[in-house]
Design a protein around this nucleic acid. Structure first.
Lengths: 129, 129
DNA sequence: TTCCTTTTACGAAAACATTCGTATATACTT
DNA sequence: AAGTATATACGAATGTTTTCGTAAAAGGAA
């Protein structure tokens, strides 16, 4: 089995991935327009970043038409999990419960979402000592 | 009220803060020894980082004795909250529940901790629609 | 004192990440 | 076809973070 090094998207790369995860495969133009909603950034900057990401194997470019279409090669949930693991270690010394408590305590989560979490807790308590 | 810019410790800086939060004010030597347990790093590298952090106002150095003693000026919980907010936006598009579900689903959290979280949920459901 | 060890000071290199100017190609409009 | 708009290619500048070599200062041991 080949050792797969876990990719570590930078902050800017993650922004781009988010757009692609949300919208599906897209042109640089579309991604750039989405990013422009939140921050000032030049078109060629976005282009360059996406080209670099393609080199790194995070994206794949379909070059058949003039406007290349980029598709994310990283799965959203898997990537989130990897980022989360790293973040939990770095910021909370690995304590999931501390992280969760702070995440819940300081954000308005809807009743529905809280219920979802409660259900997960029920399921988990089954298997834990 | 003076505008307090939220500090953004880098990854290395955060590692140092963790040591100081855990052990309390310490010398470069101690911090360096702790870091060395997990990774290869030169002593002067650690020193330099801590000096930079002092310049930035993250640490305060007591220079009365030859081995300076560094004290963290950032509060642990407050800093964690700020990092968490940023991370939640960047990696989970701001969804606390998604983050929480993934954090719980993929880590063995003890029954006691799960109960703590359940209690928090109970308290939260009171105030939410 | 002299030698050895530990510490801080300083500056610069190395490694990454981000940004963008300019050139060139491709398509669209008139 | 000529002119305009939009795309990619390329390379380099800029910015940030991390690393460490070297020197000087301070302290301890012989």
């Amino acid at each position: 089995m080949t050792l797969e090094k876990t990719p570590k998207p930078t902050e800017s790369e993650l922004e781009i991935l988010q757009v692609l995860w949300q919208h599906g495969a897209s042109t640089v133009r579309l991604v750039h327009e989405e990013l422009s909603k939140t921050k000032e950034v030049g078109y060629t900057t976005t282009l360059k970043l996406m080209q670099i990401m393609a080199e790194k194997g995070m994206l794949e470019a379909d070059k058949t038409s003039r406007s290349h279409i980029y598709r994310p090669l990283l799965e959203e949930e898997k990537t989130q999990q990897q980022l989360l693991d790293r973040f939990m270690d770095a910021a909370f010394r690995g304590s999931a419960s501390k992280l969760v408590m702070q995440a819940l305590g300081n954000s308005n989560t809807s009743k529905e979402e809280l219920n979802e979490i409660r259900n997960l807790l029920d399921k988990l308590e089954g298997g834990n000592k």
